[in-house]
Structure formats: structure tokens, C-alpha cells
Simulated scan of single mutants.
Amino acid sequence: MSASSTPETIEISGDMIRLGQFLKFANFADSGAQAGAMIVDGDVSVDGVTETRRGRQLAKGMLIEVRTPDRVLSAKVG
């Protein structure tokens, strides 16, 4: 599976956002609990590195990828 060639940029209001919040904001997760489970399961990467911390701070320009059984979802923090 591969990510789409041009990931969508999700604009945030401040300079930083936590990973769990971003997954909900980008509609990759329906709830905080689902976002946490995806992170703990190792299905989420930040700039190509698997991330297991829900509270990881994300800055603008970072690439977030979520592996699902069907595909890889990707978005940049904007």
C-alpha cells in the first residue's frame, strides 16, 4: 500500500496540535478513543517514523500517515 501522491493539507489555527487531536480534526478518527487505539497499534507515522505517543506535538509541514486495512491515509499539517 502506498499513500496518495499529494496529501491534503489540513490547516490548523495555532502553531502546534497534538497527534490525537489532529487525527480527529483530519477525519482519520471518529473519536479520541479511536485515535488513541490507532496510535497505540502502531498504525500512525509522523514524517515516515511510527509514532506511539498520542500527545506528540505536530508542527506545520509535518506529514501524517495512517495505515488502514484498505489503504494509507495521509495529510500534512498546515
Rank of each mutant, 00 (worst) to 15 (best):
M1S: 15
S2K: 14
A3E: 10
S4Q: 13
S4R: 14
T6Y: 11
T6E: 14
P7V: 01
I10H: 09
E11Y: 11
I12N: 01
S13P: 11
D15H: 13
M16T: 13
R18W: 08
L19N: 02
G20W: 02
F22L: 06
F22S: 01
F22Y: 09
L23M: 04
K24H: 10
F25L: 15
A26N: 02
N27V: 04
N27S: 15
F28A: 02
F28S: 04
A29S: 10
S31C: 08
A33D: 09
A33V: 06
Q34E: 13
A35W: 04
G36H: 06
G36P: 01
D41N: 14
D41S: 15
G42E: 05
D43C: 11
V44L: 06
S45Q: 11
S45P: 00
D47M: 03
G48D: 05
T50G: 07
E51V: 02
T52M: 11
T52A: 09
R53T: 06
R53Y: 04
R54N: 07
R56D: 05
R56E: 10
Q57M: 11
L58D: 00
K60T: 05
K60I: 02
K60E: 05
G61S: 03
M62G: 01
L63T: 00
I64W: 03
E65R: 10
V66K: 04
R67H: 12
R67W: 11
T68K: 13
R71W: 08
R71C: 11
R71Y: 08
R71A: 12
L73K: 06
L73N: 02
A75C: 04
A75K: 00
K76H: 11
